[in-house]
Simulated scan of single mutants.
Amino acid sequence: MIKTKRDMRQKGNAPKPDIEFVVTEPSGLLDFLLLKLSNKSRNHVKALLTHRQVSVDGIVITQYDTVIREGQRVKISRTAGPVIKQKNSLDILYEDNDLIVINKPAGLLSIASDKENEHTAYRLLTDYVKTRDPENRIFAVHRLDRDTSGILMVAKNERMKLALQDNWSDLVTERGYVAVVEGKLQEKSGRIQSWLKETKTLMMYSSPTAGDGLEAITNYQVINESSEYSLLDIRLETGRKNQIRVHMKDIGHNVTGDKKYGARTNPLGRLGLHAYKLAFKHPFTDKIMCFETKAPRSFTALFKDGNTRKGR
């Protein structure tokens, strides 16, 4: 059979097949890819992860420090994968065999309450994992307030759930929030410590007496301000119910939109609180995993006029 130039061109234009490797020993995903794709640059390999072209056992992975195990299959797609979004704008930031990390929108409960059982992150994620296998489950390991947006993590198996829940305070190395609060703070950075208690009406409040409640410690830094509002970077040393909201009230600068604790303004149409960072030590590998999101645009938009300045 004689091949024409057209036949040769058509064959040359045919899409290249996906590549698949079988893992023979435990490794970090990036190290594995750099070894297998030795003719590619480090930036090229990272781009494959960013563009959702790498999957492990059929699950798209974007986190370069994911630990892969012997027998797993790593597939590299020739085309970029779609960004996964659940209904209600529930973004999946990261997923592997043990964890799912999402960017929870404000207004969505983390788990069911007495008044709401269906519209929760837990239910949406349960539906998501069951599309692959009806036997799949997820397990809550921490939560965010309904009106707080940001990083929320769930376990995909009971082993990971127990490991995280039993050692949460030891494993979590950093929890960062960005908050819009009322007014200008005289002290541009500080550390707030109190002991939190709960009333019969489920309101939290601070006691200055050591041991009179659960110890709560909040660190803050002003990163921008206007005549009406301040934008804070907040780092938690403890993770108590409504901790940031109570501590901001204690210093006279309520989180905006926090009617429950006495805020007078609501410029964002929502609670001005977003969990932007979560870092923790993986309970089985001891590797530090870190997830971050940007502050909502509506937060930073409040500080774009000429009256703003960077906080110290």
Results as ranks from 00 to 15, higher is better:
Gln193Gly: 00
Gln193Ser: 05
Gln193Glu: 07
Gln193Pro: 00
Ser194Val: 02
Ser194Ala: 03
Ser194Gly: 01
Ser194Leu: 00
Trp195Gln: 01
Trp195Arg: 00
Trp195Ser: 01
Trp195His: 08
Trp195Met: 01
Trp195Tyr: 09
Leu196Trp: 02
Leu196Thr: 08
Leu196His: 01
Lys197His: 03
Lys197Ile: 01
Glu198Asn: 03
Glu198Ser: 00
Glu198Cys: 02
Thr199Gly: 09
Thr199Gln: 05
Thr199Ala: 04
Lys200Asp: 15
Lys200Met: 09
Thr201Ser: 15
Thr201Tyr: 07
Thr201Arg: 06
Thr201Lys: 13
Thr201Gly: 08
Thr201Cys: 05
Leu202Val: 09
Leu202Arg: 12
Leu202Tyr: 14
Met203Ala: 08
Met204Pro: 02
Met204Asn: 03
Met204Phe: 01
Met204His: 02
Tyr205Ile: 07
Tyr205Pro: 04
Ser206Leu: 00
Ser206Arg: 04
Ser206Asn: 11
Ser206Lys: 01
Ser206Trp: 00
Ser206Cys: 05
Ser206His: 01
Ser206Met: 00
Pro208Lys: 05
Pro208Glu: 06
Thr209Val: 11
Ala210Gln: 12
Ala210Leu: 02
Gly211Leu: 06
Gly211Phe: 07
Gly211Glu: 06
Gly211Ile: 06
Gly211Ala: 07
Asp212Lys: 02
Asp212Ile: 02
Asp212Ser: 06
Gly213Val: 06
Gly213Lys: 08
Gly213Met: 05
Leu214Phe: 10
Leu214Gln: 15
Leu214Asp: 14
Leu214Thr: 10
Glu215Lys: 12
Glu215Cys: 04
Glu215Leu: 10
Glu215Pro: 07
Glu215Met: 10
Glu215Trp: 01
Glu215Asn: 03
Ala216Phe: 02
Ala216Val: 12
Thr218Asn: 05
Thr218His: 06
Thr218Met: 05
Asn219Cys: 08
Asn219Met: 06
Asn219Ala: 01
Asn219Asp: 07
Tyr220Cys: 14
Tyr220Trp: 14
Tyr220Leu: 13
Tyr220Ile: 14
Gln221Cys: 11
Gln221Gly: 06
Gln221Ile: 12
Gln221Phe: 09
Gln221Tyr: 06
Val222Thr: 14
Val222Cys: 07
Val222Ala: 07
Ile223Met: 14
Ile223Ser: 10
Ile223Ala: 12
Ile223Arg: 11
Asn224Pro: 02
Asn224Ile: 03
Asn224Met: 10
Glu225Arg: 10
Glu225Lys: 15
Glu225Trp: 09
Glu225Ala: 10
Ser226Arg: 08
Ser226Ile: 03
Ser227Glu: 15
Ser227Met: 13
Glu228Tyr: 13
Glu228Ile: 00
Glu228Lys: 14
Tyr229Gln: 13
Tyr229His: 15
Tyr229Lys: 12
Tyr229Cys: 13
Tyr229Ile: 10
Ser230Tyr: 05
Ser230Pro: 13
Leu231Cys: 05
Leu231Gly: 09
Leu231Asn: 10
Leu231Ala: 11
Leu232Asn: 12
Leu232Ala: 12
Asp233Cys: 11
Asp233Asn: 14
Asp233Thr: 11
Ile234Tyr: 15
Ile234Thr: 08
Ile234Gly: 13
Ile234Lys: 14
Ile234Arg: 14
Ile234Asn: 13
Arg235Tyr: 11
Arg235Val: 11
Leu236Asn: 04
Leu236Tyr: 05
Leu236Asp: 09
Leu236Met: 09
Leu236Ala: 08
Leu236Gln: 09
Glu237Leu: 08
Glu237Ala: 02
Glu237Ile: 01
Glu237Cys: 00
Thr238Trp: 02
Thr238Ile: 12
Thr238Arg: 06
Gly239Tyr: 04
Gly239Val: 13
Arg240Thr: 13
Arg240Pro: 15
